[in-house]
């Protein structure tokens, strides 16, 4: 066991690398490659800890069945009439719940020794944050697919057809991915996974319940309606309903995407700054 082997392997397998000068910055392409390497790591982690998928595999089914049968008759007169209203709402809710896990898992991850190594490596600071989020697209895909399937089993027949449903699911995944930056930021700011969970729930619950996701805003008092109308979740849910039920791409889609872009533009830099500051 001689360390001379290090040298020989360096020169034989990486000849071009010898005597390369240190680079002052990470290039964009390198940053993207590093993000995908981190995404691969997160996917391996998911594969080896399947219990982490419980929230996206069980909750969509439970929530869809529960909300539909509990509220269906009261809100829309019957379960069948409620489905076009509730399925897009549940979709939004499950995706947002899945986002919260992004923040808590990041926090847990950052407390582990391996993050010390990530920090000490010459890699883009955004890669350890964005990598798990890319892998989380898998989670959003599972959550949305299951919700739609349960809806179909319960008798939901989306008027927008396959394309409408796909469009809505895609929009919600984009929304989930954008909103995950908020919880990633919370993850970099808070000291423990529990506090991340707590704060995230405090953000998540008002956003989903004080929206039009489960009941039409019409029955709410004026002050609440004022909030519901500006709540971005309402816009996303409305856009998804239009897509799923009518196959219509309405202006709400634009508002939803604009909101997503704004969230990313604000919280991605905040997250990186906060992560960098912890160094």
């Amino acid at each position: 066991m001689t360390t001379a082997q290090i040298e020989s392997s360096t020169t034989t397998t990486l000849p071009a690398a010898y005597d390369v000068q240190p680079r002052p910055h990470v290039g964009t392409r390198a940053a993207v490659e590093q993000t995908f390497s981190m995404a691969w790591r997160a996917l391996m982690k998911m594969r080896r800890n399947p219990e982490q998928m419980v929230d996206v595999m069980v909750l969509p089914i439970v929530f869809t069945v529960m909300f539909t049968y509990v509220f269906g008759g009261a809100v829309s007169g019957s379960v069948g009439h409620y489905l076009p209203l509730i399925i897009p709402g549940i979709l939004a809710q499950t995706v947002l719940t899945a986002c919260v896990a992004t923040g808590t898992q990041l926090r847990e991850d950052m407390d582990k020794g391996v993050f010390d190594r990530f920090r000490s490596l010459p890699i883009a600071r955004i890669a350890p944050l964005a990598g798990p989020m890319v892998a989380d697209l898998v989670r959003y895909a599972i959550a949305t697919t299951l919700t739609v399937l349960v809806g179909l089993v319960m008798g939901y027949r989306p008027g927008g057809g396959v394309l409408g449903v796909l469009g809505a699911v895609l929009l919600l995944i984009v929304t989930g991915w954008s909103m995950a930056w908020v919880f990633t930021w919370v993850g970099t700011v808070m000291k423990s996974a529990q506090s991340v969970q707590g704060i995230s729930m405090m953000i998540m619950f008002p956003l989903t319940f004080l929206s039009n996701a489960f009941v039409p805003a019409g029955s709410m008092p004026g002050w609440l309606r004022a909030f519901v109308d500006v709540n971005p979740v309402s816009h996303v849910v409305t856009a998804a309903r239009d897509l799923m039920n009518d196959g219509a791409v309405t202006g709400e889609v634009g508002w939803a995407l604009l909101g997503c872009a704004a969230v990313i533009a604000l919280f991605a830099p905040l997250s990186v700054r906060s992560y960098r500051r912890k160094l």
């Binding site: 790591r41 391996m44 982690k45 020794g113 000490s120």
Partner: peptide, 11 residues
Amino acid sequence: VTGQYASVDEN
């Protein structure tokens, strides 16, 4: 850098 606690990925 090799830290005091193993800085490798458990998973």
